[in-house]
Design a protein around this nucleic acid. Structure first.
Length: 566
RNA sequence: CGGGAUGUGGCGCAGCUUGGUCAGCGCGCUUGCCUUGGGAGCAAGAGGCCGGGAGUUCAAAUCUCCCCAUCCCGACCA
């Protein structure tokens, strides 16, 4: 392509709304424009990057036996009512009505519609397994779209769905996808990590996420620094080993202590002169399945995702002050498990080991001390409901876990029979027995991957595209297009590179060289061919964007030199 | 959903407190001259329902009310 015939609207100033690096640079370098909050247009450069990514994805999906299909984006409400997600998805689901008043939604993900498809056309074990995928726009009315392409309301996603006869088949499909994803992200040139994940509203019980490591990432991950161990998990899922105290104190008799207006862990520890690890926090939660009290050590935070999964609740919310008073008979700040009735107690593993701890007394301005689990309150339901933090011992090898931020670019789920059961997706096995199809789903955020690549690959001057994703691999810049020798040699270089099968842009604009160099650095072409002073000798300068390294080469050896870099 | 802020040519902003030659600046854009190895210079231009609506007033970008949009922070740890 020629720059004079191509839309590359770079900006000198950045729109004020852009905050994160990828958003700023993609706007400034002319890859994207905003249409509405969380909704973007991809300009020619952005679209080329998208095509590069989707091509890699297609190759790897097809390599594993994936078959590409196109699914409707507008989906009838009935399917979502059938799976139960019309309610569960809540306000994040874009809903609309047709002229007859019938309900539809814009697909945020496609389990329903594909389950519907397969149940209509797959009847026999002979037709399984199937791996079907689509690369399409998806819609989620995020409560807060932000960070440009990283969290939009409309985005491009690849989703593959696997349909197997049994769990073994699912395991095979799952492993195939993990292999494929590792290849996809490696080829995209991003630094990533595979972590254990919570499956969230999609459902299922086993899930992993692919995280691009970046400080701007919204996800917090914890991983074991021991390479042989390799444990890594999203904080929502992360576990840590419970350390049982070695020499426990003798348990003492329960004692009420006055704690006037001491409501928080901080207040109570300061007042009683003890550490927060001596306190047990009692957190009251309301769910559609009733009230729950979660007990967690005073220096810990509760992991609501774990609690929600444990209870099996769809809605989980901390109880308001009125509920707390009604249930405990005391204002907020004095809740404790001793004598607490009408709620189910969930005791964190760490709490179960505690001796002589401090809890609220369920009366105003009072706490109990020397509370002992099992003796003073029941420990029937002991579970891991705490939020793991950096430094906690690895659940596998006991070393202190390390924390890092990541951008979730892919997630794989073993759905099991959640959707096939809800929607009646069955097949007949060899014995003529009707059985449920076992499903998995595997997503890649394509537009998000584009942004994540920029988050990880940029400098003060602009983007530095990994070669596999770059909109053009190389840009040819004649320093002075009015110089006939330079212009002619630039044309030759351009033609040579194109014939060599490379993606090349000729910056034939009559701009001063500084402008073209700045733009080239901003857009982030991995290589630049400068045609200038040495044009008379048939030599051009090849410059590597990432390192700034340059060398003179003849046009004849240009293709070879560029190839060598890739 | 709660809180905060902002909306003035394509982009970045000033003007608003103290209504009245305030519709202005920088960048970008167009044309011409000139220049050509890191966002040059000179000259002449084009371009704005001041987010929308309703009020107050002789007079509103400026004051009042409502609405819309956008961005940021937060979302309860007993």
């Amino acid at each position: 392509m020629r720059a004079t015939e191509y839309l590359i609207p770079t900006l000198r100033e950045i729109p004020a709304e852009a905050e994160v690096v990828s958003h700023r640079l993609l706007m400034k370098a002319g890859f994207i424009r905003k249409a509405a909050s969380g909704i973007y247009t991809l300009l020619p450069l952005g679209h080329r990057v998208l095509l590069k990514i989707t091509r890699i994805i297609r190759e790897e999906m097809d390599c594993q036996g994936g078959q590409e299909i196109l699914l409707p984006i507008i989906q009838p409400a009935e399917l979502w009512l059938e799976s139960g997600r019309w309610e569960v998805y809540g306000p994040e689901l874009f809903r609309l009505k047709d002229r007859h008043g019938r309900d539809f939604c814009l697909g945020p993900t496609h389990e329903e519609i594909i389950t519907e498809l397969v149940r209509g056309d797959v009847r026999s074990y002979k037709q399984l397994p199937q791996l079907l995928y689509q690369i399409q726009n998806k819609y989620r009315d995020e409560r807060r779209p932000r960070f440009g392409l990283l969290r939009g309301r409309e985005f491009v996603m690849k989703d593959l769905y696997s349909f197997d006869r049994d769990e073994d088949g699912l395991e095979t499909s799952y492993q195939k996808m993990i292999v494929a994803y590792n290849r996809v992200f490696s080829r995209c040139g991003v630094e990533f990590r595979l972590v254990e994940a919570d499956s969230g509203p999609i459902g299922g019980n086993v899930s992993h996420e692919f995280m691009v490591l970046a400080g701007s990432g919204e996800a917090l991950i914890l991983y074991c620094p021991n390479g042989d161990c390799g444990y890594a998990a999203n904080v929502e899922k992360a576990e840590s080993r419970v350390v049982e105290p070695e020499n426990k104190d003798e348990s003492r008799a329960l004692e009420l202590v006055k704690t006037p207006d001491k409501r928080t862990v901080e207040d109570v520890t300061a007042f009683l002169g003890v550490g927060p690890e001596r306190i047990v926090k009692t957190l009251l939660y309301e769910t559609e399945r009733g009230l729950y009290a979660a007990l967690i050590r005073g220096d810990r935070e509760l992991n609501e995702v774990k609690l929600q999964n444990l209870i099996g609740a769809v809605h989980l919310e901390m109880a308001g002050p009125e509920t707390v008073e009604r249930v405990t008979g005391a204002p907020v700040g004095f809740t404790g498990p001793v004598g607490l009735e009408g709620v189910d107690l969930v005791v964190d593993e760490e709490v179960a080991f505690m001796v002589n701890c401090i809890t609220g007394a369920n009366r105003a301005d009072a706490h109990y001390q020397y509370v002992n689990p099992g003796r003073d309150f029941p420990i029937e339901r002991v579970a891991d409901v705490r939020l793991v933090r950096e430094g906690d011992p690895c659940p596998h090898c006991n070393r202190p876990l390390v924390a890092a931020r990541g951008i979730e670019v892919g997630q794989v789920f073993k759905l099991g029979t959640k959707y096939s059961e809800a929607m009646g997706l069955t097949y007949l096995d060899e014995q003529g027995q009707e059985r449920l199809v076992v499903m998995g789903c595997y997503g890649i955020g394509v537009t998000r991957t584009m942004a994540a690549a920029v988050e990880q690959n940029h400098d003060e001057q602009g983007i530095i595209w990994p070669a596999a994703l770059a909109p053009f691999t190389v840009v040819v810049v004649p320093v002075n297009v009015r110089d006939e020798i330079q212009a002619a040699l630039a044309e030759t270089a351009y033609a040579t590179l194109r014939e060599g099968g490379l993606d090349v842009l000729l910056d034939d604009r009559a701009e001063r060289p500084g402008v073209k160099f700045k733009d080239a650095d901003l857009v982030g072409y991995p290589l630049r061919v400068t045609v200038g002073k040495t044009a008379g000798d048939g030599l051009v300068e090849l410059r590597v964007r990432r390192t700034g390294e340059t060398r003179l080469v003849s046009v004849g050896e240009l293709v070879e030199s560029v190839r060598a870099f890739l």
